[in-house]
Structures are given as structure tokens and as C-alpha cells.
Design a binder for these strands. Structure first.
Lengths: 155, 155
DNA sequence: GCTTGACCTCAACTTAGCTTGAGGTTGCAT
DNA sequence: ATGCAACCTCAAGCTAAGTTGAGGTCAAGC
């Protein structure tokens, strides 16, 4: 038996193993399995239950890595990818749409950091550490209400 | 028995309970205990083993909150506070030194984000998603080597 | 002196993004 | 036919920054 995926014979050059995908992307095998679990990848299976990925999944993983670098959580990335019909990998046009959305997120982060920095500069002058007076502490302070779990480093 | 801290009688107005510190700072009691555990606070104890904080610990907690807001991890904050002799709370001069150091960290974050944004802008143009060619992916890509645990959102 | 709210410790749970290990199977080459 | 690397699943562990709960003690007012 050579290249049967769930009973269907297919040209073998189209498919790669998890180990190969790992080598091509630099992402650990365990992480790729984890990504499947999270709905980022949808590999086929051989009759023996081994994963077989499409070559195009290399791009898909690249997309995930880049999006992560831009600060998106895996869950958000799943959402972006889910907007593509049929779990298709992003085309140039998709990618433009998605990256424009990402750009907005980055812009927001930069804006926030700049504001924080300005406030810090004022604080350097006054040395204030008062909960009732410090602008740094009091501006939009809803972070403390977020409940359990780790809070966003910057949000 | 009224105000004995580990056998030593002291003027009671100087000390506050964990509940009061919680009310004054808005930080949950459980979080304050957690902070002690992490070495951010060093309360005294009554003979009955209850915590008694200094009034000045209100400022100390404020300092922690502000530093967190600037994106510092608790561990880093412990380090900053440890530089003060005798676990003293930060004075105006200390605060200036510390906040200048923080400012540098913020500046670095902003710089990095700006660079990322510029690269993203180029990517919007080209739609590239190649691991071998994409600048976004390849610039300083050592993040993947950081090992287990959650990676910094932005670093 | 008794009640009651505030306090105590310690263990387990939370989220995100994985890794590590145990114990077992597959698939390709010889 | 066999050897062995690569694969499989599932459970447990890691970090950060806490929260929640069980089971028990303290302190202050009446």
C-alpha cells in the first residue's frame, strides 16, 4: 500500500508529513499538532492515521507565524482564516485585507504606548505615585476588572 | 492584648490590615498575599499571625500597579524595588531613576512596533507570505527559540 | 464570653501556547 | 520479514498573575 489517504489513492508529491512541515517552517511537530487541535490546520489522514498536509500548508503556517508576530492570539488568527471560504489559504487579496486589519491593531498599540510614554515623562518630573492623582494610574483604568488569568501585557 | 507585632508593642495608627490595604489600592486581598509571596511586599505579623502593613505600603502597591501598566513583569518590578536599600519604598529620586529606565523600555517597544508596521506596509503591497523572503518573518527571528511557556506578546 | 467578620494557609484552577513523556503503531528500506 | 525512525494519542507540566475554595483561627464589639 503506498499512497492512500483514507482509502483514496492520490499523487504522493502533493502531500507532506508532519515532520517535513516542521522542517520547512521551523515549527516543532508538537506545535503543529497543537495548531491542528486549535483549528488552524486541517490535515488529511492516511489509513494508518498519520497526518498528511498539503504543500500549501507551509504558507498557511507562515501566515500564522507572521500574524503571531504582529501580536495576534491564535484564536484571532483562527477567526481570520475562518473568513476564507472552505478553509482556503489566504490569497494575495485576502492577505491584503487581513494585513490592513492588522495594521490598525498595531497603530492602536503604538498610539497607546505613546500616550503612556508622555504620561511617564510628566511623572518623571513630579515623582508622583499617588493613586488619586497619578494620570498614569488613573487613565482608563479598567484593566483590574478583567478577572482571572494573565492580563494582556499591553491593551 | 492590643497591638503587639511579634511581641513588640507599637503605636497602632502606623499599621494597616490587609483588608484596608486592599480598599486603599483597589487590589484584591488574594493579590496582595500573592505579591508578598513574590517578594514585592514584606508585611509584619501580629502574634496571631495576621499581616500588618505600613501605611507607606499603599505607595509601594501604587508603584507596582503603575510599573505593571508600563508592561513590566512582577519579577522585573521586584528587581527594581530590590535596588532600593533595605526594602525602602521609592523616594522621588528613586522614582526618577526607575522611571527613566522604564522609559527606555517603552521607547524600545515603540521602535520595534514602528519597524514592524513599516514592514507590514511593504507586505501589504507584495502579499508575500514566503518564509524565505518575507522581511516580517525573517528579521531577528529568535522568538521561536525561547522555549516553553507563553511567549511575550511583543518583544 | 461570645459571636461574627476578617483573617490565616494550602491546594487546585484559570488562560495561552506550547513541550515532554509514556506507551503504542506505521511505513519505508533492506 | 524485520528493523527502526517517524509517527500516533493522551496526560501532565511549564509560565504569569492571579482567583477560588476548604477548613480553621483571630480580634473586636457587645
Amino acid at each position: 500500500m503506498e499512497n492512500f489517504l483514507r482509502g483514496i489513492a492520490v499523487p504522493r508529491a502533493e502531500f507532506i508529513t508532519i515532520g517535513e512541515l516542521s522542517k520547512r517552517t521551523g515549527v516543532a511537530v508538537s506545535a503543529l499538532r497543537f495548531y491542528e487541535d486549535k483549528g488552524l490546520l486541517h490535515p488529511l489522514r492516511t489509513n494508518g492515521n498519520q497526518r498528511r498536509f498539503l504543500r500549501s500548508d507551509i504558507r498557511r503556517v507562515s501566515f500564522v507565524l507572521i500574524a503571531q508576530k504582529l501580536g495576534l492570539a491564535l484564536e484571532e488568527i483562527v477567526a481570520h482564516l475562518a473568513n476564507l471560504p472552505e478553509g482556503r489559504n489566504p490569497t494575495l487579496e485576502d492577505w491584503r485585507k487581513i494585513s490592513r486589519a492588522m495594521r490598525e491593531q498595531i497603530d492602536a498599540r503604538i498610539t497607546l504606548l505613546n500616550r503612556t510614554r508622555n504620561q511617564l515623562d510628566q511623572c518623571i518630573g513630579c515623582g508622583c505615585l499617588s493613586l488619586t492623582k497619578c494620570q498614569l494610574y488613573n487613565k482608563d483604568d479598567k484593566l483590574g476588572l478583567k478577572g482571572p488569568g494573565p492580563r494582556a501585557v499591553l491593551d
